[in-house]
Design a protein around this nucleic acid. Structure first.
Lengths: 334, 334
DNA sequence: CATTTTAGCTAAATCGATTAAGCAATTATA
DNA sequence: TATAATTGCTTAATCGATTTAGCTAAAATG
């Protein structure tokens, strides 16, 4: 019941391991192996139940048929859906996925990247966080196949696949404006992640292009770490401001969730006067009895596109750095 | 900038690879290596930036420091949270996690198990689906380290970690009874998965022990595949039944979500008369303006416990088959 | 002083597949 | 007919770490 190796087959048939290896890798023709011999090898392999040892092969070829996935937190729906999409697309190419969560901590992501490289993943899909620039630069230098998803850095060239944060955000705010909203507050993360700043820029520019004045007192920035407390605090402050705001726009589903939770827990809110908007959603969101509008991230395409980029790089079909920007699905605005 | 190997160190110092290997594995004392020599080796290793090659080591030792995780669908919150918990606990032990989704299809899970074994994962954490008995039996025969989570099979002995479905379900139904509900409908999956049948048994027995008569017309079973359509159909039928039901109890959060969605889309429902219950929840659930009560799965403990079981097996500290049954958190019933 | 023990180290096999280099026999070409 | 090309296959090195078996010299023992 123990493992069958190339050597076993070669011994039983009295041929060399080399020959068996060639046949098993489908290189019989190329290597001009006699058809009859090749067939015998295949038959014997089947009989003995031979399967190439993954580790031995990986060690020789340096290829592991595995992709490393580094995200902020797989238990977050956005990332778990992304992971699923990546898993599916990777499977199409015969690859598996090994994953790890960074919790937006670049020490963790750095460690994960190192371990995954150590395990010889053929490529890395990374949702980078602040401070990951160093790691990206290193990957660039080493020409290690990788692709960033959801976020990237202006300061360093990289393959990346992201959603069009700027235009998505612009349209969501524009929609509120067109609905007659006058004072649109914005709740964002206080970090320099490009997706977040782009959403902010979309907000600003939408206001501008409709002649609204930018009022920094109705823009709140909360931290990843104390997201719950700070979002609550931001909400509390926003509700007190005069003249009254009539829309709160959340730059992400998590913030929207917490904001809504706050509103429910402090149920003096009049939803005739206050509307909500969110850059992206949870599946549940439209069931909440709350006037909220949101975009929907093209998560599946993000994952698919990321894997495709990795595959191109692995197979060296890549024509240099690749930037993919997918539109936010705003069909739910109507 | 290329990889530093044991041989590089041994050459530079004029000692054998064996010695270097011993030192690097902390076996210097045991192998009676001269302290000065050992120190020299460590210093040189640091200087050259030596890191043991994972594949070479894995090939020799047969250990990959990786755990394989097979679930129904990582994009489902239950599983993604479980995955996160498993990832964390595995990391504590220096392990990574490679994952795959079976979509409740035993062909897929079988393939995943095979591939993961091929990749020499040191253990498997499996959320099995119907038809996986064969694979479990095989793992038993091979004495491959594994543990089932969330589900298991009565027909075959296995290590498993599950929630106490029976008692959890019993208490949820009991709670409805104590609230004065008279006709409690049940929406379940139509599959022979033990977690689902146990939830059903809890429902039945709670009814019985309070002298309720079991009425099969208010128990609906839907399939995994057409979950959306069939749940809608079940809801439609339940709402028509007379005498009117006054509680719908969903055996899982997904069913509850779809049921609620149906109710909202057919908004003639009077929530003064109809209450809801669900075995487990979504984070959002209590924000819905719906009278729903639910249990909360001890997901983190499930994952932690599963990894611990695997670790015991890997380190051969396991004293035979292990069954863990964790209580459902019902604190939200109050 | 002869023998045993111990300290300190190494050679070489091993895990299992891949592959560069090359050999022998046959066939084609000049 | 001598040389070149092709067919069909093999030997042995290699990837990098682990580990068994064993060697030498010094120290301990009787």
């Amino acid at each position: 019941m123990k493992k069958v190796s190339l050597a076993d087959i070669s011994k039983e048939l009295g041929v060399s391991k080399t020959l068996v290896s060639f046949v098993m890798n489908g290189r019989a023709k190329e290597k001009r192996i006699n058809d009859e011999v090749a067939e015998k090898v295949l038959a014997k392999a089947k009989e003995l139940g031979y399967k190439a040892d993954y580790l031995a092969r990986a060690m020789r070829t340096g290829k592991s048929q595995t992709i490393g996935l580094v995200m902020a937190d797989i238990s977050n729906t956005f990332f778990s859906k992304l992971a699923r999409s990546i898993e599916n697309e990777a499977a199409e190419h015969g690859y598996n996925v090994i994953f790890g969560s960074s919790d937006e901590n670049h020490r963790k992501s750095g460690k994960l990247i190192d371990v995954f490289k150590d395990k010889r993943v053929d490529g890395l899909i990374i949702c980078p966080t602040i401070g990951d620039i160093t790691h990206i630069k290193k990957l660039n230098k080493e020409r290690y196949p990788y692709v960033l998803v959801d976020r990237y850095f202006n300061e360093v060239s990289s393959n990346h696949v992201v959603v069009d944060n700027y235009n998505g955000s612009f349209k969501i705010v524009e929609d509120q404006i067109q609905m007659g909203r006058k004072r649109i507050a914005f709740v964002n993360f206080n970090v320099e992640l490009i997706n977040m700043t782009e959403r902010f820029n979309g907000y600003i520019d939408a206001l501008k292009s409709y002649g609204y004045k930018y009022d920094s007192s109705i823009v709140k920035n909360v931290s990843f770490k104390n997201i719950e407390k700070e979002t609550y605090l931001a909400m509390k402050e926003l509700m007190k401001i005069t003249p009254k705001i009539d829309t709160i726009y959340f730059s992400n589903n998590r913030l929207a969730f917490l904001g809504i939770k706050y509103l429910f827990e402090n149920n003096t809110i009049n939803f005739k006067k206050l509307k909500l908007a969110s850059f992206d959603n949870y599946e549940f969101m439209h069931l909440l009895q709350v006037p909220i509008k949101f975009g929907v991230q093209p998560i599946e395409e993000l994952g698919k596109s990321a894997v495709d980029s990795i595959m191109k790089q692995i197979n060296e079909e890549s024509g240099g750095v690749e930037h993919v920007k997918l539109p936010l699905d705003i069909s739910f605005l109507n």
